Amino acid sequence: MIVSLGGTAGLREADEELAASLRRAGARVELARTRRPPELRTYAALELAWALNARRAAVLAVREHNPRAVVYSSTTAALLGPVPGAIRFDAPAAGNRPGRHGLWQRPVEARRFQATPLLVPWSEGGLDEAPTPRAGAVIVPVPVAPSGPPERKDIAAITYGANPEKKGLDRVLAAWARDARAGEALVVAGLDEAAGREWLDRAGASGVGAVRFTGLVPRAEYRALLRRARVFVTAPRREDYGIAQLEALADGCVLVTNAAAGPYAALPLARALDARLVDDGLDVRAALDDPVRDYADRAADALAPFTPAGVDRVVAEELLPRLMGESAPAAAAGR
């Protein structure tokens, strides 16, 4: 049973992906979905409301399904969990809830991470931020794959701006104002025109005409934009995972980014592919005019552990046996 917090579309999709992978490995899986609480003024209060709702969902689902194993999907879902279970997370409260924002979450998390039978972080970076002492872990990325056949690269650059403060949209727009040339356009997905113009003013880039704000678009449409874009540029202030960057690499974009704090799974890939493009200066011009040869092919190779097949292999050979309390060789022989 997966206790799914599902506070964002990305988290809900990640939980569905994990459930599907476990089913392909032969498990029967139920999702206990958490009801969204009302918005509250502080992270500490809001996450208490989420944790209470996750506990209620888990209690009802355990009563109905009597699961052999439970996975709490996110630290918040696990904080008040009614039964022992593995904890799946992109980043721990120890890393992304400093100061008063994690006043009660961090100490409870530390106890949960020590007592749980298994941690299931999305990335090595997420595990590195987890408090110690802690349980053993199996790293299971969120799978990414190309969204379709390659298309003509008629968009110079794209970014994802649905959370503009966290994603550093002001930095991206300033870099674009500096580097853009006539006829080139930056597409800002996930932010509408009105909000986008405010961010152009904030970045001091209001004179730039070649910026297009799409607002929220269907996922298939967004991935189609990635297939048409030459460069994905982003400057997050902190990155707990970075699924948008991984998807951009999968769809053939050159990644321009800063060395943001946080687990940031795409960061070591970006450095290995072209270290020039990992810098606070966000050298979009170099990415457009002087990309590394075979960048897309090398990115596809680097993404092998993140592919659905790669993730399925880890789930079947490592995660499911650990959840079932079996040794991996014995479980493999049983299948």
Rank of each mutant, 00 (worst) to 15 (best):
V3K: 00
S4N: 05
S4H: 00
L5A: 04
T8D: 06
G10C: 07
E13R: 15
E13D: 12
D15N: 14
D15W: 01
E16S: 10
E17I: 00
A19S: 14
A19T: 10
S21E: 05
A25N: 12
G26R: 13
E30H: 14
R33L: 13
P37N: 09
P37M: 05
R41G: 07
Y43W: 14
L46S: 14
A49C: 13
W50S: 03
E64P: 04
E64K: 15
E64A: 15
S74Y: 12
A77N: 05
A78Q: 05
G81R: 02
P82K: 04
G85N: 07
A93E: 00
R97N: 03
G99A: 14
R100C: 05
H101S: 15
V108T: 06
E109I: 04
R111P: 00
F113M: 10
A115R: 14
T116E: 02
T116W: 06
G136R: 15
V140R: 04
V140K: 08
P141K: 07
G148R: 12
G161F: 02
E165M: 09
A174Y: 01
A175S: 09
W176G: 00
V187G: 01
V188A: 04
L191G: 04
D192W: 10
G196Q: 04
R197C: 01
A205K: 10
S206L: 10
G207A: 14
V211M: 08
R212A: 13
R219K: 15
R219M: 13
A220C: 11
R223T: 12
L225T: 07
L225H: 05
L226Q: 11
A229V: 09
V231P: 05
F232E: 05
F232P: 03
R237A: 14
D240S: 14
I243M: 13
A244M: 07
E247K: 04
E247G: 03
L249H: 03
A250S: 10
V254C: 03
L255I: 09
L255V: 12
Y264S: 12
A266W: 01
L267N: 06
L269M: 11
V278S: 04
D279Q: 13
D280R: 12
D283G: 10
D283V: 07
Y295L: 08
D297F: 05
R298N: 12
A299Y: 04
A300P: 00
A302V: 01
P308R: 03
A316G: 14
E318A: 14
E318Q: 15
L320I: 09
L320W: 02
P321R: 09
S327P: 00
P329C: 11
R335F: 09
